[in-house]
């Protein structure tokens, strides 16, 4: 815990010293203290926008997890479906969000819905892939055991494959958090009246760079918190999985 703290402090110190010594304009590069000041001064503004973005990310991720798990189950169950849909799934990841997002806003409006669609769309992929892999690669000995007991496919899924895939679902969700923040940001820049992404895109032309940095900081901290929460949930729901010991982060 000490080492990363030292690294961060060293970086921040260097940054602070650089802005002070070079006399950089605050709107070009705010110093760490400028960012902290903005964080405090704009706390009301940041909080309101944070709640919007947190909702988009959290709900979008939840949708991606549920839909991703269901799709992984379906693709696992029906091989022809897998052959037909998997390429489309990969293809869906090449949709350029910055172009797609304004269209979605035009179709679905400026409220929560288009943001959820984009966050879920982006988070979907890292959830489906490891979950499907885990479903298909469940232990051969356990499968044989189930066949020897005369188990149906459904029973094999229920007693062996699904529990085996649960940790993978969480791994996928943790990976998805990284892209969830970017997706929410892009969705908001495409058309919205609130959210941290909206606030950041507004702050830059207003030369409120420190505020934009503060918003980025809030977004990062939220992502880290969400990651920790998912890791904790995984420990509770899949305690048998060989997670690394020690703190979750």
């Amino acid at each position: 815990m000490i080492a990363p703290l030292l690294v961060v402090l060293l970086l921040l110190g260097g940054w602070q010293a650089f802005t002070a010594l070079e006399d950089v304009d605050e709107f070009l590069l705010p110093s760490p203290t400028d960012v902290l000041t903005a964080l405090w001064d704009d706390r009301g503004l940041l909080w309101d926008n944070f709640r919007v973005t947190a909702g988009e990310m959290g709900l979008g991720l939840l949708i991606a997890m549920v839909a991703g798990a269901l799709l992984a189950l379906a693709l696992h169950r029906w091989q022809p479906l897998r052959r037909g849909v998997y390429p489309l799934l990969v293809g869906s990841q090449t949709v350029p969000i910055p172009i797609f997002a304004p269209l979605l806003a035009a179709w679905l409006g400026f409220d929560l819905t288009p943001k959820l669609v984009i966050v879920a769309l982006v988070c979907f992929f890292p959830v489906v892939v490891p979950t499907l892999d885990a479903l298909t690669t469940a232990d051969a000995g356990q499968r044989k055991l189930m066949r020897g007991l005369g188990a149906s496919r459904w029973q094999t899924l229920r007693f062996v494959e699904a529990p085996a895939a649960l940790p993978a679902l969480f791994t996928g969700a943790r990976l998805a958090i990284a892209v969830a923040a970017i997706a929410a940001f892009l969705a908001e820049t495409a058309g919205s009246e609130s959210g941290l992404g909206h606030l950041i895109t507004q702050s830059i032309p207003q030369l409120e760079t420190a505020r934009a940095f503060a918003a980025v900081l809030v977004l990062s901290l939220f992502s880290v918190t969400l990651y920790g929460a998912l890791a904790l949930a995984e420990r509770r729901l899949a305690p048998w999985a060989q997670l690394p010991k020690g703190p979750v982060l």
Binding site: D139, G141, Q142, K144, L149, F159, P163, A164, A238
Partner: peptide, 15 residues
């Protein structure tokens, strides 16, 4: 009826 105990450790780790 027959039943098979396959080779190796086939206990389910989550149960």
């Amino acid at each position: 009826r027959t039943v098979l105990m396959p080779q190796g450790d086939t206990l389910l780790p989550w149960a």
